[in-house]
Amino acid sequence: MLDERWSDEVEEIGDTLRKVLAKQCSSEQIRAAEATETGLSQTLAQELTAFGLDDLQAEPELFARIAYELGRALAPTAYVETIPVLALTGAAGVSVGFDGPVPAANQRVAVKGEDGVYIEALLGEPRRTAAGDILVEHQSGVVAGERLGDCQLADRISRYATFIDAARMTGAGQALLQYGLAYAREREQFGKIIGSYQGVANRLANAAVLLDSAELMVRKAAFTASPDVGGDGTPSTEFAIMARTKAADAARLVATAVHQIFGGNGFAMEYDVQLYSRRLRSWANRGRRSGTDLADLARTMLDPARRDAVRLLWQHDIGLPLPRWAREADAI
């Protein structure tokens, strides 16, 4: 059964990565990287290489936690876009270019052909987005690419990319929420801390609930990938869609709530709210629109035969053993 928390091993690696990112991703360093021609931090790239991210062979849960931490830190790196291909094929430095622009920093891109997946050299004009990213609309098919795998691999990469997007947005949303909470505990208005006002507290509480559910959905999507529960090493289509949709909704809600709490300061470049909200909006708007995916999911759920084929939709499909937290509580 799914445990609501990250596993101990993933927690350890995630906490270690968080410490590395804390030294390289201060708001000053993020702003400095955004001002460069690449929009990235070369120092951070060296640190991540030394950390061994390009050499990882890991389960989806760990890759999700890595994307979560990179999103939480607003890390100026193009690594997240390479995770799906790295996780499923071992090829490092390859962006997924199935449904939208890709980072200019990665010189190779995976594209879908009629008979599978190909790796091509990145071709196109770089442009700087409002989020500070340097992206390229890849011109596929101009130069012959190297065949990476069949249509089944293309489907798995697409599912993995959807899932990783969700993890990154959830991490950034959680960090923005903490930033808003800290401000609400310190800022005074009419002689009172603004966090004591019900309207402010309710906005933050609603954002926290939605973000927690998004994080749990990311964990559930990773859980569906396990061969132990019938997975193929990649999160299922249904749960990948649900995780990304939930993460995008949570990201928009927390960005709106925190901007409102900061008032006019939320739109001032001197404050960090805009660093998060610009990136969250950019990530949410890349690739396929959530409405398209949700319509496909709705058609699946409305067809009894297709709905019954969805794995792990109900926990009783695999029984109800006690989760780890309950077993640990019983042992105390």
Rank of each mutant, 00 (worst) to 15 (best):
A201H: 13
Q152L: 03
I332K: 12
D133A: 13
T256E: 15
R307A: 10
M242L: 15
V85H: 08
T43E: 13
I318A: 10
T77L: 00
Y183V: 08
Q107F: 05
P103N: 10
M169T: 00
G93S: 06
I30V: 15
D272I: 02
S27L: 10
V117T: 13
A130N: 10
F190P: 00
A208P: 06
R324I: 03
R278A: 09
A105N: 01
S140K: 15
R203F: 01
L294S: 05
V111I: 15
G233W: 03
A298W: 01
A78S: 14
D293N: 10
I13S: 05
L322Q: 12
H138M: 08
E81I: 00
P323C: 10
L294K: 02
Q29E: 14
R286V: 05
A75E: 03
Q107Y: 03
T292V: 14
G100P: 09
Y197F: 15
A105E: 09
T82E: 08
G266Y: 07
L312M: 12
W283L: 12
S277A: 10
H259I: 11
A268F: 05
A91Y: 04
F267H: 14
T234Y: 05
P235W: 13
M269G: 01
E270Y: 05
T245D: 10
S26R: 08
A73G: 05
A305K: 14
I332T: 05
T224A: 02
Q274H: 02
I119N: 03
V273E: 02
L253E: 13
V111S: 07
A75T: 03
L275Y: 02
V94C: 06
L135Q: 05
V80R: 10
N265E: 11
V143Q: 14
